[in-house]
């Protein structure tokens, strides 16, 4: 077992375990924190793949900005384990079963592929900021600009939705 594989396995176990903890913990605050762990694990994978830019962006945007936003909302609403409504046991069972079945079926389908394709690990410059930047600002400059408009509209939308309604809803 090479060091790479060991790191891969460690990161994978960390990601999957944290994800399972996320969906099983009663307290939403814990869920948020476990999800941050998942994101860190995934960023680790990115580094392993030598996709440095995405690893950093993932940490900054996801683990940093977005998850803080989640945490902020959870705390704002003062949610805790008691507020979690009890779900129908049978439905939960069905959910887990069907999800597991879906996973199994796709994995079995993937394992049918007999070609061996390797992934470039810890090498290659395709994930470097320089290459990505050139590509982004040369070939993808229009989507990039449009995404700024998307952000603007999302911001306005969030403000409009979150604004306290002046008009009484019952009216």
């Amino acid at each position: 077992m090479s060091i790479i594989q060991i790191i891969f396995l460690l990161l994978s176990v960390m990601a999957v375990g944290s994800a399972l903890m996320m969906i099983t913990s009663k307290n939403p605050v814990n869920s948020v924190l476990w999800l941050i762990v998942v994101f860190f694990a995934i960023s680790g994978h990115y580094i392993l793949l030598n996709a440095q830019f995405l690893a950093i962006v993932n940490i900054i945007v996801y683990a940093g900005a977005i998850m803080v936003l989640f945490l902020f909302v959870v705390m704002l609403m003062n949610l805790n384990a008691e507020t979690e409504p009890i779900k129908n046991r049978r439905l939960q069972l069905i959910g887990v079963t069907s999800g597991g079945a879906l996973m199994l079926i796709i994995i079995s389908a993937v394992s049918k592929i007999d070609v061996e394709q390797l992934v470039q690990i810890n090498a290659g410059d395709s994930g470097l900021i320089k290459v990505l930047g050139m590509n982004l600002f040369k070939n993808y400059v229009l989507p990039f600009e449009i995404s700024s408009v998307l952000f603007l509209s999302a911001m306005i939308g969030a403000v409009v939705i979150g604004k306290k309604e002046e008009i009484d809803i019952k009216k």
Binding site: A19, V38, F70, E84, M103
Partner: peptide, 20 residues
């Protein structure tokens, strides 16, 4: 990826908290 994705699906199915 599939395992993570399926965990996400199962989470959607079994939890009722909108944030989760």
């Amino acid at each position: 990826s599939l395992v993570l994705f399926t965990i996400g699906i199962v989470g959607v199915l079994v939890r009722r908290n909108a944030i989760i």
